[in-house]
Design a binder for these strands. Structure first.
Lengths: 312, 312
DNA sequence: CTGAAAGCGCTTACAG
DNA sequence: CTGAAAGCGCTTACAG
């Protein structure tokens, strides 16, 4: 042992993994890090995985649907688990993972397929909450700037938002497509705010776009926020808290989401059984300055203002 | 081959690496992803490494100086190269890498030690440029909010800034310590702006802090920017371009920096020779709205405004 | 309890 | 040109 120490011997983890059949590597696939939400997720993932004595192999960049070379690489490195954030595997590929016995967890996404686990938040309820908040604020004309239209997050947020608005008698929502992209969100905002019947309440599908939309509204259209236009976002990312924006936003409990993701992975790895598990968490509507504040329903908890209808 | 295809055979990269003595894995160590500059770097690194057929093993979280377990893990996975961003290895550890024949590149950092390569920008010239710009803007009283005081980036930026100011007869710079941290930068700004002789020109060591400082100046002190206070940042990160901030900032050529980093690594890996190489690139002072604009020296290139003293 | 052997899945050099 | 053998650095089961 002393000699080993002296010579700086370190066991070769790669040789070990060959015989143990465990690489202790988790692959994390993140299409893009531009949305500030994801770097935060990544950092937290790194923290938890290291605690579990796992390494994090990162794949960024958009994956093409089926024939991804990225996927081949995951398999070649015999990763013990895969976390997919802001990407979805084709059904073909997730099948392959399942047969190869590699646990897969979708982060902030779901699919109909039952084979792969997922961790999400109640996006539909979130969408409803946003609508309730804007209705309580006395708004009359509602808009929505969407994310990627086929994504489960976008779909669920919009469905909940629309449901609650329709129940209140508003069935004419102005919709623009933002694709979770700044530039596209800006274009959608320009188009929407140029309309003679422009909305006075706007739900933007995530904060990453909401920041861009606020800049367009304020500096290109000269609108006062929230006097002329209320904006609500989603995710509660860092920039939402910056005073210049102060975005009222549905939060996603990032730490708990990451924790659930790692838990699912760890239990599937150790049990060797891959039974799809779906963990669904809840967020809160964080009230700041980007949207008119209703007379009641806003409570203060630990210095943060949260909208909880029914309470005051 | 047909059979292999049918059975979904994929070579085991780990077994291969055992015999080839090449893991085709590069370790990237990033202390924190909070500063928006680093996620961008990470994404670009991912792009280039994948092109070179390398994988990216990510380590986040602060490393303790000498005895880091993280470093042990790097070694255990027999990574082919190490990129250190926003962290420095102790001399002891970089020595070990050298003897183990693993190339190391410091990204956006340097050390006196010659054994390890680095990619940086001309921070001292950058600091000078900022000073020249603020002097040309007619400012009288200069402040500086620092990064981590021991870091080479911070030191060089400040040295250049001070040099140019002293040459112009200003040797009384008000200095606050921001440690590249939002909260600390805010505290430093509060302290500095409360002074009776508060500066009218403020160089903040990076944009990540500059955003926070601007919010403090505007919303806590009611200052107009740039009328009451000019602020210049560093890095030219995404948020600097958001209209609400519009930070005048020294850019760092991120893509070229990443390219140089990967190049150094690749050439050292293929040659097997680890000779320290220091690549130093240049940035530009991107002119936006957070600082008073001098009468001359600002040129427009591809729709971006850049300060190039001596030209107009 | 200690120590030698087999084997994980590859690649490479060598024999047929 | 094809095919069997050796070996990368571990772990694990087994023999002494």
């Amino acid at each position: 042992m002393a000699a080993a120490q002296e010579l700086g011997y370190r066991p070769n983890a790669i040789a070990r993994s060959l015989i143990t059949n465990r690489s202790r590597i988790i692959a994390v696939v993140m299409a893009y890090l531009e949305n500030l939400f994801y770097p935060d997720v990544l950092e937290e993932l790194g923290r938890l995985l290291v605690k579990e004595n796992y390494r994090l192999l990162l794949f960024t960049g958009h994956m093409d649907r089926d024939s991804d070379p990225v996927f081949d690489q995951l398999m070649q490195y015999r990763v013990d688990g895969i976390i997919l954030a802001s990407t979805t595997l084709s059904s073909h590929l997730s099948e392959e993972c399942a047969t190869a016995g590699i646990p897969v967890v979708l982060f902030n996404r779901t699919t109909e397929r039952d084979a792969v686990s997922s961790v999400t938040t109640r996006n539909r309820e979130g969408g409803r909450r946003v609508a309730e908040f804007l209705l309580a604020g006395g708004h009359k004309r509602f808009g929505y700037i969407s994310g990627v239209e086929s994504s489960s997050t976008n779909r669920d947020r919009f469905v909940g938002y629309r449901e609650a608005l329709v129940e209140a008698g508003h069935d004419d929502i102005v919709v623009g497509v933002g694709n979770y992209d700044r530039a596209e969100a800006e274009a959608a905002a320009r188009e929407m705010l140029s309309r003679p019947d422009r909305p006075d309440a706007l739900f933007v599908a995530n904060d990453h776009m909401a920041v861009a939309v606020m800049d367009v509204a304020r500096y290109e259209f000269g609108l006062s926020i929230p006097e002329d236009l209320s904006i609500v976002g989603y995710d509660d990312v860092g920039a939402a808290r910056w005073t210049a924006y102060g975005i009222t936003s549905m939060s996603q409990p990032l730490k708990r989401m990451v924790e659930a993701t790692v838990n699912i992975l760890m239990s599937q790895i150790s049990s060797g059984e891959i039974e799809a598990e779906h963990r669904i968490l809840s967020g809160e509507l964080m009230v700041r300055t980007s949207a008119r504040v209703p007379k009641s329903g806003v409570v203060e908890i630990d210095g943060r203002r949260i909208y909880k209808p029914g309470k005051s």
